[in-house]
Design a protein around this nucleic acid. Structure first.
Length: 260
DNA sequence: ATAAAGTCCTGAAAGC
DNA sequence: TGCTTTCAGGACTTTA
């Protein structure tokens, strides 16, 4: 589920629930979500320190721990979430890591499939993660957007999905953006006209604005995304039957009439 | 059993 | 030709 808008929501959870709070305990309930850190260190290092200002790049969420301390790194894979809970709220089966905060209850990392997870990194490793990411989709300028996309030989959908090109877009958002921009997902990125690229950038901005406000990609019927699970999906704009096929290995839905 | 909204890795293809 | 970049596909994980 989590794409940029969801992670932006988790950042807000972290800010409202955790900012300037002291970590009093870290409980690792399933070590399968730990990446490059053991349960012991994940508990020892943050405990007794304050959470700083959380920030996000693409689908990654970062929060510094203490002054000059390490940075907690969260990635939510396809099924992860971060929630603020009262300590007496029953634990869910997939609550994998629980931070206890002074006076503010629990911060719980829940994840059904353990495709990604939690890290605790120093400056160098943080730089490695961020360095592998393209500009954030929420803030990228039109000019930079054009620059990173225009040379790509692959399908525009694959380019948008590639986090090292542009960070934050997932499968649903890409389909939605291309549909609104009336661009076929298999079009080669470098074959797009300046006008088309502008349009994709503008539609991306609009889709993200609405999604971030909702905290997810909204399931509305006026969105393409609201139709992907229909039995015989129709384009909500022109009524043509939608196509569904694989592009870059991912299920892709588009309207063959609107998107050429 | 198949497929799912995540990324990473690998080998192959394409480009210079 | 040889080196580098780009791309497609599978692995990973759990569940409906």
């Amino acid at each position: 589920m989590p794409e940029l808008p969801d992670v932006e929501g988790f950042r807000e959870v972290l800010m409202t629930c955790g900012r300037q709070r002291c970590v009093t305990d870290v409980e690792v309930r399933d070590t399968g979500v730990l990446r490059g850190v053991g349960a012991q260190r994940l508990r020892r290092e943050p405990t007794g320190r304050r959470l700083g200002e959380a920030w996000r790049q693409g689908k990654w969420l970062f929060v510094p721990v203490g002054d000059g301390g390490p940075v907690l790194v969260w990635h939510f894979g396809m099924t992860g979430s971060l929630r603020c809970c009262a300590p007496d709220e029953p634990l869910a089966p997939h609550d994998r890591v629980v931070l206890t905060l002074d006076g503010a209850g629990h911060l719980r990392y829940r994840d059904q499939r353990k495709l990604q997870g939690v890290q605790l990194v120093d400056g160098a490793r943080l730089a490695r993660i961020v360095g592998g990411l393209g500009p954030d989709a929420l803030t990228v300028s039109r000019a930079e957007f054009r620059d990173v996309l225009s040379g790509r030989r692959c399908a525009v959908k694959s380019a948008l999905m590639d986090q090292s090109v542009i960070a934050g877009l997932g499968n649903l958002l890409c389909d939605e953006i291309l549909w609104r921009a009336r661009v076929a997902p298999r079009t080669r990125a470098r074959g797009l006209s300046e006008t088309a690229l502008r349009c994709v950038h503008a539609r991306m901005g609009r889709v993200l604005e609405l999604s971030v406000r909702a905290g997810c990609v909204p399931p509305g019927r006026s969105w393409l995304t609201g139709h992907r699970d229909d039995r015989e999906p129709m384009c909500p704009r022109c009524g043509w039957p939608l196509c569904s096929n694989r592009v870059g290995g991912r299920r892709t839905v588009w309207c063959p009439q609107c998107q050429r």
